[in-house]
Nucleic acid binder design. Structure first.
Length: 487
RNA sequence: GCUCCGGUGGUGUAGUCCGGCCAAUCAUUUCGGCCUUUCGAGCCGAAGACUCGGGUUCGAAUCCCGGCCGGAGCACCA
């Protein structure tokens, strides 16, 4: 009886919402987010950043932001600034930031240790020749060189030409996956590094610097994409050689983004040739682009948390993002009128004189007060709203539209209901502001908005009734520019 | 081609390890109703899934084998 009870309890372990629980220790965990600084962060990066941050938060651990800038060809200098900004936007604050370019001496030191242990060797084979041997499970001649010989070559590594030699880590030359066999740890690079200039010529390969750092920084868990599965396998050999404990390696699947298939390099290319306005062009999948459109960081954070760290790939749909974001925006966004392609109309036979129409900023939050829209018989309507039939200019009057003729019908809402009049928005003839809305495909919607919009600040998010949610991006002399979020 | 990894509604996710409580969870989406001075929101309701075929078993989304489909890696990139 007792035993049965225990078993049931084990099975019914309560799981945390969203992210599945971390394997291994939960005490003093240390995790890292380690991007290559090739550009600002995009939604794909959040798949790595968010779970790390979330686990750290959950277990009160430590999060390190490690900038992996060990390939000068793939460093975009502004990214050093942009990455921490993007993380901050996501609500992620690393406990520490380290740059791998500051740590070359540490890598050199460990490379030497490896050679001394006989676990690495200087390889002077031609790349193609090595591959030929490796693919046939054959060791190259360099593999048998003595430690002394390897140290000698290592010491004059710096004087060789790029490509003349590399340092290889010994693995298993018969490993069934050829990619794992004796991988490269160090190579020569002559490119100028944005932070280091030409101070060093010997550069670590990612598998080497990552392993050394992960160990030295005390990582308890390493989360990475499944594209690194083979790399984890390679790195295990290094941990073994050095006698280090392995962190928990956790791999997650690919994140596919509906529509936008933009890699950082493609985006940069488009920015440079003028196709895109910048890293925050609404067509891009960068965090700064979605932020500009009024996507709340919690939308991204929550969605990524929900997707979790499983090995299967997943595809994010904009519908899902918009749906989640709408739930966050709906209560905070105040309502305003905007008419696209405004047509000034005159309501014939209107004799009500000048009235001030009051509309709540938000129907569910009356305490926020009202906007005031003066009406005296004429107004701007959206071109697409003008069609034959009976309509109610919201909160003002009911009109009959026939061709160019717009005539007064009645005033009360009850009449509109009886007439089954469709309700349309309008903008006062006198009191209005120019509005441009930059859509998600970068096209522009231009028109007029009600005067109350000029009270807004940049960054405010509104809902234009029947148009959608938009974020005020810029206040120009005679124009407000919004970025469209979604319906 | 070789090595490896996946496959639950349109999308995302729970459940798979330890088979029964799963005629499968939640979110988003779509549709309908109510309400409402937004074709919005809200409320109510509905739609929609275990990749296929064998096997084990009293019982399979869950275990085994095979097929199919998808993805990744196979760099002196990260």
């Amino acid at each position: 009886m007792e035993k049965y009870g225990v078993e049931v309890q084990e099975k019914k372990q309560v799981k945390e919402e969203g992210l599945q629980e971390l394997p291994g220790t939960h005490e003093n965990i240390v995790l890292r987010f380690a991007p290559n600084p090739s550009g600002p962060l995009h939604i794909g990066h959040s798949r790595a950043a968010v779970p790390n941050a979330e686990y750290v938060k959950r277990h009160n651990g430590k999060l390190i932001l490690r900038i992996e800038d060990t390939d000068p060809k793939r460093v975009y200098e502004d990214a050093y600034e942009m990455i921490p900004e993007d993380l901050k936007w996501l609500g992620i604050n690393p406990d520490e930031i380290v740059y791998q370019s500051d740590r070359f001496d540490i890598y050199y030191d460990h490379a030497r240790q490896l050679i001394e242990k006989g676990a690495a060797y200087m390889c002077t084979c031609d790349g193609a020749a090595f591959k030929e041997l490796k693919d046939n499970c054959k060791a190259c001649p360099c593999r048998d060189n003595s430690v002394e010989k390897n140290l000698e070559l290592w010491d004059k590594f710096d004087t060789m030409d790029a490509g003349e030699a590399v340092l290889r880590v010994k693995t298993d030359i018969n490993h069934k996956n050829p990619a794992i066999r004796d991988w490269v740890a160090m190579r020569l690079v002559d490119e100028t590094h944005p932070r280091l200039g030409n101070k060093y010529r010997i550069y670590p390969m990612m598998n080497f610097s990552v392993s050394v750092d992960d160990h030295l920084m005390g990582m308890t868990h390493v989360l990475r994409g499944k594209d690194h599965l083979a790399n984890s396998e390679k790195q295990k050999y290094l941990y073994d050689h050095m006698g280090w404990d392995l962190p928990e390696f956790i791999h997650y699947g690919r994140l596919k983004m509906e529509d936008i298939a933009l890699s950082t390099s493609k985006a940069l290319e488009g920015i440079e040739n003028g196709t895109y306005s910048g890293w925050d062009d609404p067509r891009l999948g960068t965090l700064r682009a979605v932020a500009r459109r009024g996507i709340d960081p919690r939308t991204i954070y929550n969605l990524i948390t929900e997707i979790g760290v499983k090995m299967a790939d997943s595809a994010i749909s904009w519908k899902k993002i918009y749906g989640l974001n709408r739930n966050l925006l709906e209560p905070i966004a105040n309502r305003y009128f905007f008419v696209e392609d405004p047509q000034l109309i005159e309501v014939k036979n209107y004799e009500g004189g000048k009235v001030i129409v009051e509309r709540p900023l938000h129907a569910d939050h009356m305490d926020r007060g009202n906007r005031l829209l003066p009406f005296d018989g004429s107004a701007y309507l959206a071109k697409s709203d003008i069609a034959d039939g009976v309509f109610r200019l919201m909160d003002a009057v009911n009109v009959d539209i026939k061709g160019d003729e717009i005539t007064y019908n009645s005033t009360s809402f009850e009449d509109a209901r009886d007439l089954k009049a469709r309700i349309i928005q309008w903008v006062p003839a006198e009191d209005n502001v120019n509005v441009t809305i930059v859509m998600d495909d970068a096209s522009l919607k231009t028109g007029l908005g009600e005067a109350a919009l000029s009270d807004l600040n940049v960054g405010d998010i509104v809902q234009f009734e029947r148009v959608g949610f938009a974020r005020l991006d810029e206040i120009k002399d005679n124009e407000l520019v919004f970025y469209y979020a979604h319906k």
